[in-house]
Design a protein around this nucleic acid. Structure first.
Length: 295
DNA sequence: AGCTGTACCTGCAGGC
DNA sequence: TGCCTGCAGGTACAGC
């Protein structure tokens, strides 16, 4: 499901296909996810795309930004003349647009010299489709200089591959009585880790998810830190995890779910030894681990 | 302050 | 077959 590697995969896709485009129209099929005045974005150019934790920010030339959170089942799918023949997932997308399409952004393309290329009609315009099956996601239209004041971004913790160094991670873990799995999934503590990678990183580190954070030895802390990076790097290579509805910018599935270590594998044989993967609930979330080798 | 439980939403799996 | 229930998840928030 969408965690740091999935959202980063989408960010890279937006950077490749959407940055530089001018928004000429926005079709609102269902206004549910929208907050703020969406008309505000029409006529502006997409000048950059950022990711903060599991959130995305499209910065526009008119001083506004689109802050987007796809939560569990959101999708951002780009289509234009060049990409319309690319195959996309039949099971996760089906057709474009579909009954889960809430908002459609329509663009003019900018050429290498910075000129806006001519577009015959809005019908042929390149498009970005925002789909969301469970409607948990949101799109906020907000002045760029106010984006980081949104509580979700303002409280975001340090992130793997950015400012979450081993030293920072060690300080987070040290002295905390909280159970280690809910702790690393708390976005205000560390940005970007969700259920799949928390489960797999703890399995890789042979640490029981119920352990109080402060019970981890220095060696275990380092091992967990490296495991978080390792499972996420693996996921980047696999194009993300399409456990639920995740697809990339072209509507294609990732493959990490076929390589996950323990997530969703209750009752299955432990991939490392003689144990069986057990499922418990921790912090209200499904937690998968091997009692035999995670201690 | 920090924790737990629940709401949000809807497709799907499982039970009868 | 088909209805019904419960479950999944990231985040926000109420309540202890």
């Amino acid at each position: 499901m969408p965690e740091l590697p999935e959202v980063e995969t989408i960010r890279r896709g937006l950077n490749k296909y959407v940055v530089g485009h001018k928004i000429i129209d926005v079709e609102v099929v269902h206004p549910g996810p929208l907050q703020g005045d969406i008309k505000q974005v029409i006529g502006s150019q997409v000048i950059g795309v950022r990711r903060i934790g599991k959130g995305l920010i499209l910065d526009l030339s008119n001083g506004y930004s689109l802050a987007i959170h796809i939560k569990l089942t959101g999708q951002l799918i780009y289509r234009d003349k060049k990409t319309e023949k690319e195959p996309f997932s039949k099971t996760k997308v089906g057709s474009i647009p579909n009954k889960f399409t809430h908002v459609i952004f329509k663009f003019k393309v900018q050429n290498a010299k910075g000129k806006i290329a001519s577009q015959k009609s809005k019908v042929d315009a390149p498009r970005l489709y925002y789909n969301d099956q469970r409607r948990f996601g949101w799109i906020r239209v907000i002045p760029t200089d106010k984006v980081l004041d949104l509580p979700f971004f303002k409280t975001m913790g340090p992130e793997p591959f950015k400012d979450l160094t081993l030293e920072v991670f060690s300080k987070i873990v040290k002295n905390k009585t909280t159970k280690i799995k809910p702790l690393i999934m708390d976005q205000t503590v560390i940005g970007g880790i969700g259920n799949i990678y928390a489960n797999d990183a703890l399995f890789k580190s042979k640490i029981n998810p119920q352990r109080p954070a402060k019970s981890l030895s220095n060696q275990e802390t380092k091992l967990l830190y490296n495991s978080i990076l390792a499972v996420m790097e693996k996921s980047f290579k696999e194009g993300g995890a399409s456990e639920l509805s995740f697809v990339n910018i072209l509507g294609q599935e990732g493959n990490y779910q076929n390589h996950s270590l323990v997530y969703g594998k209750a009752g299955k044989h432990c991939p490392r030894g003689d144990g069986t993967i057990k499922r418990i609930t921790l912090g209200g979330r499904g937690t998968f681990f091997c009692e035999n080798c995670q201690r």
